[in-house]
Nucleic acid binder design. Structure first.
Lengths: 172, 172
DNA sequence: GGAAATTGTTGTCATGAGCAACAATATCGG
DNA sequence: CCGATATTGTTGCTCATGACAACAATTTCC
């Protein structure tokens, strides 16, 4: 193993490399390496950072079609289940009905989804993808698959699948 | 294994049980069970849901001392490393300097942290916990430990540790 | 038939991420 | 040593998201 050099040169753009900052903080800290303390024992902390990192990549990946994770999840669920109501979708995704209303407002304004009157319940809407919505979803799926591949590659496919299974029916 | 009864009675409060909603949606869906579609292959989706669930429990657990996850992480890092600057803390936690400024404003207003002038750099602040801050952090740690125990129990201790290790050095 | 619940909707508030700009200060390169 | 360039803390904005409360219309329960 080649030891990383302790010489911290400022990059061409002058950005302070992470190693330099940690080293400086360690020095100030009387020799003990600067770290996260008890935080390193908290799963929630790492879940958060991982989730943010994954979402950032997802957003970057689908930026060309301007679809964010929440929008993607709505399109997927509507596209995978016929005649769902808004309450159904909100419940499936674990989000508030109020939040879904606003998501659908925007998707509908973009011509991707439709709210049809339910034939059996006049309070309710039957949700549907427009042809444009189906088209967009198709492209979204392709991009999302690329994103997921990157993730699987980064974690190792076995690890990747294991984490999905571990989290699948997680609910505190 | 006792099969769950397919009879969906409305609860005393009238709330529609999850099983009933899924069953109804399934019926509308021509027999295929209503589900999350391709979403079930996306780690990010489950990471998100798990993270939200864990944070909700954390917030509930520390509600008595009014400390939220972000505030907790700042207190921990300051308490674990002497003489960190704001840029150091922001970098360690992976948050924006601007965000940390506002977090510290509130913690300082509550008398939990201090910004001392750095003796070596007049742009910079040396961050410190006040005695009150140390006290609050101590109680926060106790409560957070209880939260983490619940989590470990829910996942199984082995699973729990494995997930932390898997996520520890994750960065897309 | 009346009480109670559900559905979609609107409004409001708080948290959080991300970006841009700024003055003060420090560092780099020649 | 000096000027160019970076960093530091800060402020101001915008946007996404979560959480709650209230509401009218409608449905369901008893």
């Amino acid at each position: 193993m080649a030891e990383r050099s302790p010489v911290h040169k400022r990059g061409p753009n002058g950005a302070l490399p992470a190693g330099a900052r940690v080293a400086a903080a360690t020095r100030r800290n009387g020799g003990r390496p600067a770290g996260l303390g008890v935080l390193e024992g908290h799963l929630g902390y790492y879940l958060r950072r991982a989730q943010v990192s994954v979402f950032q990549d997802f957003i970057r990946t689908l930026a060309s079609i301007d679809i964010r994770p929440a929008q993607y999840s709505v399109l997927i669920v509507i596209g995978s289940n016929a005649k769902l109501s808004q309450a159904d979708v909100a419940h499936l995704l674990g989000i508030e009905r109020a939040r879904l209303v606003r998501l659908l407002d925007r998707l509908e304004k973009r011509g991707l989804t439709q709210r049809l009157p339910s034939p059996t319940d006049r309070r309710s809407h039957v949700l549907k993808l427009t042809p444009a919505g189906q088209q967009t979803l198709k492209r979204a799926k392709a991009l999302a698959a690329a994103h997921e591949s990157r993730l699987a590659e980064r974690l190792g496919p076995a690890h990747h699948r294991m984490m999905i299974e571990a989290l699948r029916d997680f609910e505190l």
